[in-house]
Simulated assay, not measured.
Amino acid sequence: MKSLEDIMAMAQNVQAELTKAQASLDSVEVEGVSGGGLVKVTASAKGRIIGIAIDDSLINIAEKTMLEDLLVAAFNDARVKADAASSEAMSKMTSGLPLPPGFKLPF
C-alpha cells in the first residue's frame, strides 16, 4: 500500500494536470450549426463564444423570429459540442489514474 505522502504527492500532481487541462480547453474550438449551416456559432470548449456567422439570406425583418430561433439552436449545439470536447480532454487526462468507478474530477 502506498504511503500517505505518496498519495498526497499524486493528488497534487493530478491537481496540477487538471489546472493545465482546464486552461488548454479555452484554445479548443467547436462550431455549433443550425438551419442547415445558415447560422454558425464558434465557441471554446470552456463555452466562451468566439464568433457568430449568419448567412445573408436570413437578414430580413420578416424572418427575425426564425433567425432568433436558429441562433438559439446554434448556441445550444455549440454548448453540447463544447461539453463533449471538455469531457474528452478530461477523460484523456485522467485515464491513467486509479480512480474508483463513477469518481468525477475536478473535486
Rank of each mutant, 00 (worst) to 15 (best):
M1G: 15
K2P: 04
S3V: 12
L4N: 05
M8K: 15
Q12I: 04
V14D: 04
V14Q: 03
Q15T: 11
A16T: 10
E17N: 12
E17R: 14
L18V: 08
K20P: 00
K20H: 07
K20S: 10
A21K: 13
Q22A: 12
Q22E: 14
Q22R: 13
S24R: 14
D26S: 14
S27G: 04
S27Q: 12
V28H: 02
E29H: 12
V30C: 04
V30F: 04
V30E: 01
V30Y: 04
E31T: 15
G32Y: 02
G32A: 05
G32V: 08
G32D: 03
V33P: 01
S34F: 08
G35P: 02
G35W: 06
G36N: 14
L38C: 01
L38I: 10
V39K: 03
K40R: 11
V41R: 01
T42L: 05
S44V: 12
S44G: 15
K46A: 13
G47I: 11
R48D: 09
R48T: 13
R48A: 12
I49Y: 07
I50W: 03
I52P: 05
A53H: 10
D56C: 00
L58Y: 02
N60V: 11
N60R: 14
A62K: 12
E63M: 08
K64I: 10
T65I: 10
T65K: 15
L67G: 02
L71K: 09
A74N: 07
F75S: 05
N76S: 08
R79L: 15
D83S: 08
D83K: 06
A84G: 06
S86T: 00
S86I: 01
A89W: 01
A89H: 02
M90C: 08
S91W: 04
K92I: 08
K92Q: 10
M93V: 10
M93P: 00
T94F: 02
G96Q: 14
L97G: 07
L97W: 12
P98G: 09
L99G: 06
P106A: 06
P106M: 09
F107Y: 07
